[in-house]
Amino acid sequence: MRFRGIGGFAASTLVAGAILWSFMTTDVEFSRLLSAGPRIAEFLGRMFPPDPTVMREIMKGGAETLRIAILGSLGAVVLSAPLGILASETMVSPPLYRTVRTLLAFIRAIPLILVAMLMVGAVGLGPLPGIIAVAFHATGMLAKFYAEAIDGVSRAPIAALESAGAGPLARLRHAIWPQMAPVIARDTIFRFELNLRESLILGIVGAGGIGFYIQTYVRSFQYDKAASVTLAVIIMVVAIEAINVALRRRFA
């Protein structure tokens, strides 16, 4: 992209100014940066070889993360179905869908980890605050996707069925649903993948799952164990992604 004219000049000045300001006010000690190389090497050295004895903790934490993602996603689907309808242009009046869309944008703007911390404060440690946090956070995106799926439905076949004498439920079943279902399925699977990835770190704030062990081992300088858990997380993420790619192809 090329900047042109006064606006372009103003934008470049602003970007340059922001970078300079960041350097000036942040205490960047280059000496610390220089010594970082050997430190990281040492850190990695202590992580190797990963300690395989934590298999039990990995299975337990991984299963809990999976449960948080599944139940959190389920909660998000349940919340998104009505909110998606209320955020859709074709189902409700402009003041209502605009209000609901603004609300969803606010929900999306709150980071998951923040919601999780608040929930831990509200309901205590464990997977429950994680589940609630995931359900709440994911609804911000999923309800918006559902609204778009509803609005993306072509009207012509609906009118055709109405012209043939089909009632509203029959139109929903045979003209609206066939158009919407694959989009909804794809969006839900996509959001589930994000939920699983994001809930891996929930344990750090005490909201359950495998992240708890990473945090525990790093704090107690057991880097070889932390390494095993991290490896397990990487394998989980890659596996989820592979499964999702395969699933999404089915709904093309």
Partner: peptide, 29 residues
């Protein structure tokens, strides 16, 4: 045409009969 793109040809043609079916049958397909 106003057809349901993702449905089969037969399902689309059966849609023409929805107004002549009982509401329950129409809903259940």
């Amino acid at each position: 045409f106003a057809l349901v793109e993702r449905s089969t040809v037969l399902r689309n043609v059966l849609n023409g009969r929805l107004g002549r079916m009982s509401p329950l049958r129409a809903l259940m397909g």
